Simulated scan of single mutants.
Amino acid sequence: MAAARTPVLRHLVRSGSTPRIASFQRRWAQVHDVRFLATTQPSRSVLEKYRDKLDRKAREEGLPDIDTLKKAYSDKIDSLRKEFDTVVPVIPPTPPPSPQQQQQQPRQQPPPPPPKSRPTAEGVQPLSSILHLPKARLLPAAELTAAWIALHTALPRSLSAVIPAATYAGMDAAARACPQFLVPVPHAGQGAELHFLQWTWDAATRSSTVLFTQLAEYKARGEYAAPHTTVTHYADLAGEEGGLVLMRGAVAEDRGVKVEDARWLVMCLQRFYGGWDGEAGKDGMGRERAEERRRLLEEFARGDQRFSVERLLEEAERMG
């Protein structure tokens, strides 16, 4: 995913302890010949140490004593001895070149960095490949909603929703101003897990796509982190009378995220990116909560130092 341009996110990504690398080698470390260290240690005679076992082995083979056993196995013993006595030369480290040598040698250009995998709407399936749009435009809103939900109910790891065009217009405006955000997923007895979301748009399919990634994954892999949930909004039918925006999504099976957690993330997406408009006519408490969600979203987008994960978690608890 694209690296976040928000200072607050950069602060969160870099916060916490940095894992230490257990096995760190200096480039010019001294090399020891471990064969010398092994062969100069004092030890008891191998023959005395294993005399009882050798006697038993000789009797099992029907031989009178250990000397006869050694003669019987002399060829095998010689073969193993040659194998273990083979000396592998220790190559000393090459010292760094002197400044004069560096000037004489042509400077090699470093290889180009690998291409970054940035979030993109490429490959988004158009709505016309999912629905017969001329027929869909003739359906009443209730029937179209029921048909869309039923289409995705049979898919075990799918998500779907139908959003009024006016509500989505508010979400889209907020998303273009604040295309990245954090959303917590509470886990009973284990606190909450933070997830990073990012919006992308594709004019060709009249769609917007939201990518969800675990923040721990994003911290570990940066722009190469793979999303666990992808949600696409189709605005093809938004211009119709009583227009609707159709949403469909999928939860990856191997990313450690349950479908229930993904549904929570989508609910938070709708609340933070437009829920305050829907609650404007409610009581004072509802308007206050909607205003707080709007402030959190805008503070995060601006990199405002007043944004805090603690306030985000408190708001998520109230929504739960």
Rank of each mutant, 00 (worst) to 15 (best):
L296Q: 06
H195V: 04
G281P: 03
E310P: 02
G249W: 00
A161R: 10
A220T: 09
R20I: 06
R157V: 04
A290W: 01
Y224V: 12
Q104W: 11
K116Y: 11
I77Y: 15
T205W: 01
R295E: 08
T230G: 09
T205Y: 01
Q270T: 05
D283G: 15
P186E: 04
S45V: 11
E223H: 15
A3W: 12
Q198F: 07
T68I: 06
K219I: 07
V259L: 12
R20K: 13
K53R: 13
A226T: 09
L244H: 00
H132K: 14
L133R: 03
L313T: 03
L47N: 07
G62E: 02
L133V: 08
A250S: 14
W276V: 05
R44M: 07
S17G: 11
S17F: 14
P106D: 08
T145H: 06
P110T: 05
G320Y: 05
E298R: 09
R306F: 06
T153D: 08
R157C: 04
Q104F: 12
D202A: 12
E240H: 13
A262S: 11
E83C: 12
R311E: 05
L155G: 05
G243D: 01
E217Q: 15
H32K: 15
L63D: 01
R318Q: 08
P106Q: 14
V8N: 00
D67C: 12
G274M: 01
R255I: 04
V87Q: 15
R293T: 03
G281E: 11
G123Q: 09
G256Y: 09
S160E: 02
D277M: 07
L47A: 10
Q305F: 10
